[in-house]
Every structure is written in C-alpha cells, then in structure tokens.
C-alpha cells in the first residue's frame, strides 16, 4: 500500500511542479512586457520601471521562477498591483466563500445522486427508472449559470425567500451567510448530481452483472442485501474516479456561479483580476485552484486504496 501511495504522491508532486512551470511560463510567453501590459499603454516609462522592479522582472528567468515557486510554498504569492495588498490576504478573504460553496455543492450533489442512482439500478427498466434517468439526462444538459438565473427569478425575485446575490460575510451571522450560498450551491449541484446519478446507475448495473453477485445470490442473500453490501462497494471505484473529475468541473463552475450571484469568492477575484490585468493575482489563484485539483486527485487515489484491497495488498 505504501509503495502505491508513495508513487501517487510523487506523481502528484511532479504534476504540481510541471503545472507551476506552465503557469509561470504564461507570464513569460506574453507578447511584450508584462509590466506594461498590466499598466496599460498610457503608463509612463518610470511607472513601468517601478513595477518591473517590484515584480522582479529584471532578474534572470530561472531565479525568478525559483523565487516565485519558493514563495508559493511559503504562501507568499507576492503583492497585488491593483489592490496593493499581499495576494495571500485577498485569497484568504475569498476562500471562505468559495470553499464552503464548493463543499456544499459536492455534498448536495452526492446526497441526491447516489440514492437516485441506486433506486434506478434497483428498478432497471421500470417507469420510475425511465423517469429519473430522463430527468438526469435533462439535468446534464442544463448550463449551471442559466439554472442559476432561473433560481434567482423564482426564489429571489418572485418568492423573495433568499437574496438574489451578494454575500453579507460570515460576520453577519451564520444563517444570513449560509442563506446567500444556498442558491449558488443548488445551481452548481444540479448538473453534477445528474452526471453522478447516471454514473452510479451504470456502475451498479455493471457490477450486478458480475459472477460474484450470482455467488452471493446463490448463498441465499436477498437482492437488496446484495446490492448494498456487495455491489455498491465495488461500484465505488468508478464513482470515485468521477467524483475526482467532477471536483475540477466544480472549481470551474464556481468561477461562473460566483459571477452570476456576485459572490466575493476566488472565481470572482480571478475574473476581476483579468479585467484589471492584475497578472500576479491571476497566476496565484490559477495555481491555487490547480493545486486543489491535484490534491483532490491524490485523495481519490487514497480512497481507491481504501475501497479496493487489490491496491492495498500485494498478491
């Protein structure tokens, strides 16, 4: 098991290093001077020079990469040009919105999808199965930002149950802050839940066709017992893969959804940074999100090993 995990850990670390080189190179392949790009065409030469100095652009490239990468490791991302504050402050201020949102959406989608998928697989071919898979099929096709608009229209504009957007901050109390995240989380969760429900069903049906399911049935175990105790755990393996991939989509989804709801999260930060050409912020947030995806993928590998003894124990 340790060999497997060490290997996955090494792969994750390697991916992270290469990803950092890719992100860093983005600044380097920029046509022209990044400092000038950030300041716009009307900036004076002197201001540009100041910024170049500040960004360390006058140093050799390797040194600058090591400097930057070293900074990342110590959570020192540099200083935002537009906000004139350390990037880490901006990030920590925003992450308390994005992270709860992503987790809420993930929990919500899993909580809906797994029971629906199991329910459908149990009743394969029935009307209930056809209806729920039809609904899932439509759910997959609905873009999350459009669904968000509909939710806003129904629950904020029409029913006035929740705010249409914005975030009062966690200082305003747990409930108001939570309330502001409900619609965004639902909007994010729908598509993921639809995908996950379909995958759960088909993974279960695959497993239910296996020989060992017949062995368990020949042992006298009733159908539902076999489904929950034998099939589901084996079906977890493809499910975990999808959950890992979905996290990346969820990250991308937060960028859009935060913009729909005007939530001051990382997605909104990166988007504003683009329009303001604050490349240091863009770079840092992209790197942070990429790192999150890589860490989540490692966690998925870890859970494979927990679910599947063939990875845990050598023959």
């Amino acid at each position: 098991m340790t060999t497997y995990l060490l290997k996955r850990l090494a792969i994750g670390a390697l991916t992270l290093v290469v990803a950092s080189i890719v992100v860093f190179s983005v600044l380097e392949i920029l046509p022209g001077d990044p400092a000038r790009l950030m300041l716009g065409l009307n900036a004076s030469e002197a201001t540009v020079q100041v910024l170049r100095e500040q960004m360390g652009l006058n140093q050799p490239i390797l040194l600058r990469y090591l400097d930057w990468a070293g900074g990342l490791l110590t959570l020192d991302f540099g200083k935002s040009y537009t906000y004139s504050v350390p990037v880490i402050d901006l990030i920590s201020e925003r992450v308390v919105v994005s992270l709860p949102l992503a987790i809420m959406a993930l929990l919500l989608s899993t909580a809906i999808a797994i029971p629906v998928g199991v329910f459908s697989a149990q009743r394969r071919g029935s009307t209930a199965d056809t209806l729920s898979m039809g609904a899932a099929q439509i759910g997959v096709a609905i873009p999350n930002f459009w669904f968000a608009l509909i939710l806003i229209y129904i629950f904020a504009v029409w029913l006035r149950l929740v705010p249409a957007g914005g975030f009062p901050g966690w200082n305003a109390g747990l409930w108001p802050a939570f309330k502001a995240l409900i619609l965004p989380a639902v909007a994010l969760a729908l598509q993921q839940a639809a995908i996950l429900a379909r995958v759960t069903r088909s993974a279960l049906l695959d497993v239910l066709g296996e020989d060992y399911i017949r062995t368990a049935r020949a042992k006298g175990m009733p159908r539902n017992y076999v489904l929950w105790r034998h099939a589901l755990r084996n079906a977890m393996i493809p499910l975990l893969t999808i959950l890992g991939l979905q996290f990346a989509f969820l990250i991308a989804g937060t960028i859009i959804i935060e913009n729909v709801f005007y939530l001051p999260g990382l997605g909104r930060l990166i988007f504003q940074a683009i329009t303001q050409r604050d490349l240091i912020v863009v770079e840092s947030v992209v790197m942070l999100l990429v790192a999150t995806v890589i860490v989540v993928n490692f966690l998925v590998d870890l859970s494979y090993a927990i679910v599947d003894p063939r990875l845990r124990i050598r023959q």
């Binding site: 017949r214 062995t215 049935r217 020949a218 006298g220 034998h230």
Partner: peptide, 22 residues
C-alpha cells in the same frame, strides 16, 4: 432465499470471478 445457500448450494465454473474482490 431461505433455501439457497442453506439447503441448496451451488458451485460455478469460473473461480477467478466468482468471489467478491473487496
């Protein structure tokens, strides 16, 4: 269900896949 595995047992052809791997 009460009969299977108690009064009637069954052995299958393919031992490599007949057991739950987890």
């Amino acid at each position: 269900c009460a009969l299977r595995g108690d009064d009637i047992g069954m052995v299958f052809q393919e031992p490599m896949t007949a057991l739950n791997p987890v």
